[in-house]
Amino acid sequence: MLAVDLMGETIRALNGSMVAYDGQMTFKRQGITGGEGLRGALRRRVAGEGMTLMEVTGHGTVYLAHEAAEVTLIPLQGDTLYVESESLLALDAGLRTGVQFVGLRGMSSGQGLATTKVEGHGMVAILSDGPAVALEVVPGEPLQVDPHAYVAHRGQLQQDFVTDVNWRTVLGQGSGESVQFRYQGHGVVYVQPAERGGGVLEI
């Protein structure tokens, strides 16, 4: 659960995530464009990813939560965070959001084809099923991740599928980890201790 003290500021939060508040608060649904302009909305329509944020303004404390998920706070200092839109609980109103197409990754992890991109200076609160673990990626030390445990990532990262020869022999016999992502470059990947279902590449 996340407690946010507001003194007249505005935050953006996941629709329906308010569990309690005291003081004076107003909740406003964001327009169809979600603060991204028409182009952002159009891209979302194409990508099948609904904009799911509301604006919260007021004086007091608002408590935010979703399905008993754990909350991880990520301070952004001019860098970019990529996160599934359902995993985005709240963010400072000053941060920009946009859409990033992710190709196959979204399909295999049971998510849409696009992911939300958050940029700027401010705090982001993300949701995970169990506390998220932050894993650093540096050049020469790639990280392999189960797509179902992936939550978010930040930094300059390239993502590809693990497809070595051994891998293909295991595929089809169903090793249970038959599709993996490999992250290379410089950045941080957030993973959760539970696996969401529903991916199309599940074998």
Binding site: V133, L135, V145, V170, S175, G176, E177
Partner: peptide, 20 residues
């Protein structure tokens, strides 16, 4: 390891089915 319980790894690790 039981299938589906790995969430991430670093290093050179291969996963083989028991029939390998």
């Amino acid at each position: 390891a039981q299938k589906g319980k790995m969430i991430a790894y670093y290093g050179q690790i291969r996963f083989e089915s028991l029939s390998a």
